[in-house]
């Protein structure tokens, strides 16, 4: 079997994206350390980016104007921008909370309680 000719299809990429997304989701649900939760969020955003780029790549059509067909990549770029902003503000919040509560443990953050 010639592995070089065996191309990887769209669904494979989507599955990789889904895998990363679900791992991130698990991290968000299961971790106690709030920084770990932020890391997991980044994983999820990355997974979404994989999907954007994959759709862009595989539904690419030479006949359509190139300036429209790169839209998926642009969306991914914007996601990266938002993610960067999110992690900056998120970590600043973590540090502020840590300063007040001396803790990064989400279980102890229960201000939303009645």
């Amino acid at each position: 079997m010639n592995l070089g000719n065996l191309s990887v299809g769209l669904s494979t990429y989507l599955l990789v994206g889904a895998m990363l997304f679900c791992l991130g989701l698990y991290g968000v649900f299961a971790k106690r350390n709030i920084i770990a939760i932020l890391m997991s969020l980044e994983l999820m955003l990355n997974a979404v980016n994989i999907n954007f780029v994959a759709f862009n790549r595989f539904l690419w059509n030479q006949k359509i104007d190139i300036h429209y067909i790169l839209t998926g990549n642009v969306a991914a770029l914007f996601v990266i921008v938002v993610a960067a902003a999110e992690i900056a503000v998120g970590l600043a919040l973590v540090i502020t909370i840590y300063r007040n509560r001396q803790s990064t443990n989400v279980d102890e953050f229960n201000w939303l309680k009645w």
Binding site: G9, L10, L15, A18, L23, L25, V28, F29, A30, W60
Partner: peptide, 29 residues
């Protein structure tokens, strides 16, 4: 958490795999 995540992955994988349209191969770039 693990249960919900695995469930979500299962659903997505099912949708992706049972759908022939999404098994697109790359066109020439």
């Amino acid at each position: 958490g693990a249960f919900i995540s695995v469930l979500l992955f299962a659903v997505i994988a099912l949708v992706v795999l049972t759908n022939s349209d999404w098994r697109v191969l790359p066109s020439a770039w």
